[in-house]
Amino acid sequence: MADIKLAKDDHSFYIINMLDIGEQIQYDWALSRSYSVIISSGIVSIGTDVTTPATRTAIGLYRVPLGEKLICTSTQQAVFLTPFILDDAIMEELFPIASTLSQLRGSSSYLMPFALDDGTLKFGQQLVYDTTPGNISLSLASLETKTLGALGL
């Protein structure tokens, strides 16, 4: 099944999107500014609710225009990342509940378990595709739930 993981460091918040063959992830929200998608592995057909999809092969980039909702379908196993600057005002659109955003910004958590953490170097656990077929529509509410869960709240 298509899957969403989260990560964060001291400057950015990352949505890590994982797709098995033929699966789709939609973001059920649009932002007031464009943002970038990094197709880090695989081949995807990526567009929005407005813009006709285009094929992108890793490592590829896609710009989601302002006011449009991302739709991404894989033609083979694929991972794409959507990074956001933590202190950017656009984060207030991603997290409309101020207390959640405040907790996210103030936390030292990386929102993920590490396979190795020696203080200098941190490696997240190897991400595993969920091979049960299924698509995801990511709402802001489910993003908040996932974030609070990752924060352990």
């Binding site: 460091d9 990352y14 890590i16 592995s41 991972v79 490696f123 997240g124 190897q126 991400l127």
Partner: peptide, 9 residues
Amino acid sequence: VAAPCMTFF
């Protein structure tokens, strides 16, 4: 390390 994984340094 093996992909896919996130890393911080």
